[in-house]
Amino acid sequence: MADRFAPGDAVRTSTADPAWHTRLPRYARGAVGRVVEVAGHHPLADDRARGLPGTTRTVYHVRFAAADLFGDGDHAVTVELWEDYLEPADPSGGTP
């Protein structure tokens, strides 16, 4: 299985608010960050929590500037996210 993203890629997280368990924290929805590295390949937690088989998917460390998540702050937050939560972002859309 090929990884869709590589370190340095700008990605935008999903804005969806699913009715089930998800590991995309609410504070990191709809935000642009940058892939730090691949963090392994694991069945999607959203599927497993619903008793679905859960295909193995790539998981990434994605770094966000606090200001892009909360509107202020000078720190960074690195969140571990399944590929399913991510779409490519315009590289000029954020520089965490």
């Binding site: 590991r23 924290p25 998981v59 690195t78």
Partner: peptide, 12 residues
């Protein structure tokens, strides 16, 4: 000092 917070939101 730059601060990075790591959220253990998946399997690591």
């Amino acid at each position: 000092t730059r601060i990075t917070v790591w959220d253990a939101s998946a399997e690591s």
